[in-house]
């Protein structure tokens, strides 16, 4: 219907057409900050993650350490810096796991269709019939908690959503004429997947990765907060909140600081994803009425 070349600019890269906004720079800056801390933490932190530096527990900000001490008299600032490593690494690993499973199975289901699709979709649906926290609790209840169990469980929980997104993408793009054309040519499944479907699903998949990453951080820190995630003496932000909740009534911020750090991480990530998806949103008829 259109000869309107100027309205359909080529999209060689998924990042084409994105313009930096102040929010994006701000959110990206925060993420970058945490990333640097995670990489160089041990050289920056004044104390070890488990070192008890003061006999005074729940010391307020400025006393003992920079950000005070926790329930055992450890340096909150140092544990915070070590914690960002655990938090980011675990989130990354779980998200990667979920994408490995979710994307592979999702696209396979969309392309192979038939019984494979039905069986896999049914199983995933049954898994989704539980709120994700519940699923994780059941598994942890059965296997006990360890980093491996934790990572695999959360990876599994996240992968159901990744599966759904990739399957839907696979189905949507799989019926487009250019994929039909490849099929009519006689191309194999592998070509269709890697050359036709995948390059056209990059943008939504990247956004999904960001969302799952955020979710993974929230999820893991929630489990740690319940005492079912990362175990002491390792430093993890969710765990730090759990350890120090009692201090809240003693005027200590040792629980609030790591909680706020988690929030800064997840909020920034969400802002960034939102910015990445922004260009898809346009005006609506409603706005035009007022003009």
């Amino acid at each position: 219907m259109s000869d309107a070349t100027e309205f359909a600019k080529p999209r060689a890269s998924v990042f084409a057409g994105l313009r930096l906004t102040r929010t994006a720079i701000f959110a990206g800056g925060i993420l970058l900050f945490w990333l640097v801390l995670a990489l160089f933490g041990p050289w920056i932190a004044p104390h070890g993650e488990a070192d008890i530096i003061s006999t005074k527990t729940f010391a307020p900000i400025g006393e003992g350490g920079w950000l005070g001490t926790d329930k055992l008299g450890r340096d909150v600032f140092s544990r915070l810096i070590y914690g960002v490593r655990t938090t980011l690494l675990l989130a990354l690993v779980t998200t990667v796991i979920s994408f490995t499973f979710g994307v592979t199975l999702g696209f396979a289901a969309a392309i192979l269709k038939g019984w494979f699709d039905i069986v896999v979709s049914r199983i995933v649906e049954a898994f989704m019939a539980f709120p994700s926290t519940l699923l994780a609790l059941v598994v942890i209840g059965a296997f006990g908690t360890s980093i491996t169990v934790l990572v695999l469980t959360v990876g599994l929980v996240l992968s159901t959503s990744v599966f759904r997104v990739s399957r839907a993408l696979g189905y949507d793009i799989g019926v487009m004429d250019f994929v039909e054309a490849a099929r009519a040519r006689g191309e194999g499944t592998w070509w269709i997947l890697t050359r036709e479907i995948l390059p056209n699903s990059m943008a939504p998949l990247i956004a999904e990765f960001g969302l799952r990453f955020t979710f993974s951080i929230l999820f893991l820190s929630g489990l740690s907060f319940l005492g079912l995630g990362v175990q002491e003496p390792a430093a993890d932000w969710g765990l730090m909140v759990q350890e120090n909740v009692g201090g809240l009534f003693l005027g200590s911020s040792a629980a609030l600081i790591p909680a706020a750090c988690i929030a800064s991480l997840t909020v920034s990530m969400n802002l960034l994803v939102d910015w990445f998806q922004q260009r898809q949103q346009g005006e609506t008829v409603l706005e035009k009425i007022d003009q």
Binding site: S2, P10, R11, A12, M176, D177, F178, E180, A181, R195, E196, P199, N200
Partner: peptide, 9 residues
């Protein structure tokens, strides 16, 4: 014609 060509090739 629009949808028959892969936009990323």
């Amino acid at each position: 014609a629009d949808t028959a060509l892969n936009p990323r090739q």
